[in-house]
C-alpha cells in the first residue's frame, strides 16, 4: 500500500514538473508574443505603411518558405516569412539567399533580418531598400549556390495595418 502511494507521488510530481516546463516554453509561442506587432509598430515610424498579403510558398529542398506579407514604407521594404523544416535540426534559414528585384530587375539591397525559432522551423522578417514609387510588381528570388527559384509578386490588394 505504501509503495502505491510513493509511486503515485512520483508520477504526479513528474507530470506537474514537465507540464510546468512545457507551459513556460509554450508562452513564448503565443501568437501575440511573436514580436510581429513590435515590428509593424517599428515600420510605422517611417510614416505610412502599406501592407500586401501574399501568402505564397517556395519549395526549398524539402523545406517550405512562405512569403506571408510584404510591407512598404517610404524608407524600406520588409517581408514577413514563415519557414517550415522537414528536419527541424541544424542551421537556421540563411536569409541572405532571399533577394528582392523591382519591376526593372534591379536588386534591392538587403539590410538585415530577424527570426524566431520554433520546433517546426522559424518565423522572421527581412528588410530591404525602399521600392521605387508606383511599383506594381516585383520578384522574390531565391538564389543560393545551385538552388534558384523565383516568385513573382503583384502588388494589388492592400491591407490596412491599423
Amino acid at each position: 500500500m505504501r509503495n502505491v502511494t510513493v509511486g503515485m507521488m512520483i508520477r504526479r510530481l513528474l507530470i506537474f514538473v514537465f507540464a510546468a516546463l512545457l507551459l513556460f516554453q509554450l508562452v513564448d509561442w503565443l501568437p501575440w508574443r511573436d514580436g510581429n506587432r513590435l515590428m509593424i509598430t517599428d515600420l510605422k515610424n517611417d510614416g505610412r505603411v502599406t501592407a500586401y498579403p501574399v501568402n505564397r510558398k517556395l519549395n526549398m529542398d524539402d523545406d517550405t518558405f512562405t512569403l506571408k506579407e510584404l510591407y512598404i514604407t517610404s524608407k524600406r521594404t520588409a517581408i514577413r516569412y514563415a519557414y517550415r523544416k522537414k528536419v527541424r535540426d541544424g542551421w537556421s534559414f540563411p536569409t541572405s539567399s532571399i533577394k528582392l528585384l523591382d519591376a526593372s530587375g534591379n536588386e534591392l539591397i538587403q539590410h538585415g533580418a530577424s527570426s524566431t525559432g520554433v520546433p517546426w522551423g522559424e518565423n522572421g522578417w527581412i528588410y530591404f531598400d525602399p521600392l521605387p514609387s508606383g511599383t506594381k510588381k516585383l520578384t522574390l528570388r531565391y538564389d543560393w549556390y545551385d538552388r534558384q527559384s523565383e516568385l513573382p509578386i503583384l502588388l494589388e490588394k492592400e491591407e490596412s495595418t491599423q
Binding site: V87, D89, W91
Partner: peptide, 9 residues
C-alpha cells in the same frame, strides 16, 4: 549531413 541539408548546400 544535417549541417549541409539545413544550410541548403
Amino acid at each position: 549531413e544535417l549541417s549541409e541539408r539545413s544550410y541548403h548546400y
